[in-house]
Design a protein around this nucleic acid. Sequence first.
DNA 1: ACAGCGATTGACT
DNA 2: GTCAATCGCTGTA
Length: 193
Amino acid sequence: MRRAGPGFFDTATLTLAKKLLGTYLVRKLDGRLLIGRIVETEAYRGRDDPGSHAFHKKTPRNAVMFGPAGHAYIYFCYGNHNMFNIVTEKEGEAGAVLIRALEPVGGIAAMMKLRGTRDPQNLTNGPGKLCAALDIDKNLNTHGLIDSDRLYIALPYKNEKFTISCGHRIGIKQGLDKKWRFWIKGSGFVSRS
DNA sequence: ACAGCGATTGACT
DNA sequence: GTCAATCGCTGTA
């Protein structure tokens, strides 16, 4: 697999949300690789997006969303879940793509141990679950995905064919009119169909 | 210092 | 599909 470089991330939020589908999220942990194929994403923008953390203003939490593309925005929610996003857009403009579900590809035994389940379909089919399975937490917040080997995106050698479905985003109360959730149609590893 | 809250999950109809 | 338990973090004071 080849690594995604700066040019891959430096694009509009909606574009990257769709472009990330079918690519691989790679986590290096204790010398082992935990790998999942991204099958579901959501786009969050800034001033024009009432559903986004960056809608109102820049704060210490959302600051990384305003920074350069290709960095991790990880936040803690509901008292026990981490959420993993990839920052988009040019510096100064807020945007990020939430990774909502993976298809487990490599290091599955380690993921099962971290998640406490042996069901492959229930391992990484949700934003909180995949962070647990890949041991992603606030220590990796602001982490650059381009120049580190602890967490990065890898691209498939040849592009597979699949259909992208879209719908409203999950779990928010504002901005439900925007159909900014994207997933690979027919995948058995999405958080909902 | 602290009140309010949530980009979920798991259980349930 | 709906619902609420849950608790550390965030933002404002």
